[in-house]
Write a protein that binds this DNA or RNA. Sequence first.
RNA 1: GUCCCUGUAGCUCAACGGAUAGAGCACAGGUUUCCUAAACCUGAGAUAUAGGUCCGAUUCCUAUCAGGGACACCA
Length: 553
Amino acid sequence: MIRDKIKKLLKEITGKEAKVEHPEDTRHGDYSTNIAMRTGLDAKEIVKKIENNPMFEKVEVAPPGFINFWIDKKELERLFLELIERGPKIFQKKPEKKETIVIEYSSPNIAKPLGVHHLRSTIIGQALVNILRFIGHKVVSLSFPGDWGTQFGFLIAAFKRWGNREKLRRNPIPEMLDLYVRFSQAAKKDPKLIEEGREEFKKLEEGDRENRKIWKWFLEESLEDFNQVYKLLGVKIEHTIGESFYEPELKPLVKDALKRDVAKRGRDGSIVIQIPGSPTPEIIQKSDGATIYTTRELAAIRHRLKKWRATKILYVAANQQTFHLKQVFGTAQRLGIAKLEQLGHVKFGMMLTSGGKKFATREGRLIPLKEVLAEAIQRAKKIVDELNPSLPEELKESIARDVGVGAVKFFDLSHNRLVDIIFDWDKMLNLKGFSAPYIQYTHARLSSILRKAKFRNKRNPRLTISHPLEKEIMVVVLRFGEIVRDAGETYFPNKLANYLYELANTLNVFYETLPVLKAKNKERESRLNLVFGAKEILKTGLNLLGISAPEKM
RNA sequence: GUCCCUGUAGCUCAACGGAUAGAGCACAGGUUUCCUAAACCUGAGAUAUAGGUCCGAUUCCUAUCAGGGACACCA
């Protein structure tokens, strides 16, 4: 795209890799570079070699040494026409190095509802899946639910003590959660319960029929519940492979590690691995002989790399997991399962309660995602009813779903993923300003204009710039490719979210200022084409974030 | 104690080592005989502190302070 062309040009002239950016202030051109200041080269000399290039309308040196580029109108028109004719796929350039990336995200725990604290991994993960695919990588989307481990012993013990089959059948998730919470609280007073729980897990691992049956039942109910939420969220996870899947591989894995002398048996019977560069060894088998989460993760890494011939595995997981994942990665390397550079942690900050506290199941401060989405949809519905009462009920409901769910997702995706975000109903369900509905609304307005014009994407579209705002839109729209690439390469979907807002904002000013349908001849045709191209980009961008773009709202 | 993330306007957040630090919400005011006012325009308002590196620091480094999190038989 344009930025790449400028980079290439500068490389030819200076022999150096240039940083080319789009300045916020339009007076500094469409693109600019600081290469002269960084390399100590003479900016004027560089400009001399570029200024006659037909790609630019103007190239100037600005103090303290920036080189600013104004793209030629003809060049913009040409590129924009290409977008109109061939669609957003013109931005899908082949990556320099094509990767096969397994992305693990969402990964909820069985027997608990999907809560708002799962939102981040699910939403960010899905957005990254979409974006990385768009920029040309092969992506395998995967969830690794917590369907195994001592917690299941606790749950089974609780079920055997207090469980009621009928109640659980009617209302599975809340009942399971209730059992879990009750058990944790009781165990605080009576530590013997912990022992009982461990015992039940041990039995489960050894294949006890009753425990297996209970486990399987809980598992199925949970997955069913997750799928409902995923469907509503528009999240498509190709593979759900839980921890339990790796159970048969664990003992051999441990045995092999011992045989190769990578792992050592401690005096208490636990089996540990020393990690180079880490003071903390990693346990891969507990002293009671039971396996542990880490072991299952190691088996999972091995399996994924082999099954999909993956070059990389990304974990979209909270910042809290940093230490743990670092340990797992180190262990995997030590065992020769994977290279360190193949394993990446895409970390994100926490979702905190309005009091700045952590969401935790045990204290019962958990807000089910279902409730959040239901509330969002309801709020959106109220607004559609007010603003567009004449639309058919079914359409209004569908708009409310797109807008409500979109708002929740955008709230998350518009944040730099590293910061902690405070859960706030009003902010999260914001339906105006810097939000999904604002962008969706812009898309709907553009759609409406095209509808009224009976616009059809013709074979030889024509386009002439006659107003600065038109040029601005073209420059912004044509930046789409580089933005998506940046967002994908750095794993920061908020870069795309910010961009879409900027584009929508520019478009709002455009159609407030310039008539489209009432414009004459060439101008009308140009503007319709402009609207069409911009609409395609808004839609594509929203979809990459996993947000729908309704035609009307 | 060690390690990870964060500290920007009243609130919630942007900013790729660059140019006059951008938005949204809230607040004050304005725009509708004109393609959807979920919009547009105007106004006021901010880089935790102290050093350092650099032509240039919100950004990098060091220290301090503040918030969140993690530190082997939970996941």
